[in-house]
Write a protein that binds this DNA or RNA. Sequence first.
DNA 1: CGTTACTTTCATTTATTTCAGAAAGCTGCG
DNA 2: CGCAGCTTTCTGAAATAAATGAAAGTAACG
Lengths: 166, 166
Amino acid sequence: MNLEEGKQKFLQSWGALGSSWGINRTMAQIHALLLISAEALSADQIMEELQISRGNANMNIRALIDWGLVFKELKPGERKEFFVAEKDMWEVVKCIIVQRKKRELEPMLKVLDELSSVQEESKDGEVFADVIRDIKLFSSKADSTLDTLTKADSNWFVGTFMKMIR
Amino acid sequence: MNLEEGKQKFLQSWGALGSSWGINRTMAQIHALLLISAEALSADQIMEELQISRGNANMNIRALIDWGLVFKELKPGERKEFFVAEKDMWEVVKCIIVQRKKRELEPMLKVLDELSSVQEESKDGEVFADVIRDIKLFSSKADSTLDTLTKADSNWFVGTFMKMIR
DNA sequence: CGTTACTTTCATTTATTTCAGAAAGCTGCG
DNA sequence: CGCAGCTTTCTGAAATAAATGAAAGTAACG
């Protein structure tokens, strides 16, 4: 496989992976493209490379910047904006964890708290309370674990997990 | 909040969470409904409760069974099939991890292997190789970590993570 | 100022996903 | 058989999400 084929395949696969991770296909592809670019790219270069419209490119670049996965880079003497991706995989994963945690886990914990107040003396009521308690226990644990993870640096992560998995 | 309101809210929230996890809304709601039911439910009861069609119910129950999140239960003397959910949260999460790993991580690892063969003497070629190597490293680590996790039992998980996060 | 070189927004269009309901498949029983 | 009682599969319709392209907005520079 040559470099060009490899790049195409990578863009393709990263896009597919992204779409099952709450990141839309194009957003993931832009990220992939920037990941494997030696230089910062302009919006026009991204549009050209991925064959997408200006609007689409802009919106997704913006979203990636919000997530903290991509940064603006201004070249002296150029009026265009250029973009670079965060290339440290551990940082990338941390960003994604933070976003998903915020969007999913935290709202869920809030709902679970409300649901804990349900009290009813019946078989159904008991089962309900049990399930909610279990999920809450599990979610809080996940929440604090993720907090710790996202505060940790790469070496700590590698070290701890390596020990953990023997 | 009374039990009925609580149930509705739970069905609602679990459905929303599911849909950002590659599990479709209805599938997640059926799972939620079974989770909080003291008794096994029939397809008809599920249709009634969630106001969904027979076809929809059937397809999603089937999918849940495939995933290992729901089991058939045959009541003696009844021709209907009844369904119960796996209620141990740790088992539930393990199921989901296994499915997602199979659907996402493993294909990605395969692609990365192919992409490792790309060799080209240029700045771009170098960056590409570097990125692929990093992702591969990270993914393999994630892969073996998840393997260990899914083989572990609940107590081990709780213990290790509690230690890990102080 | 006003022109130029971009960036951002937004109403439409287009693609994807999900669902209801009809039709077809089983299974067991008389 | 053939009918009753369920389960499964399929297809077109409806809902949802994403992309386009043109118009509006901004900022640097003479």
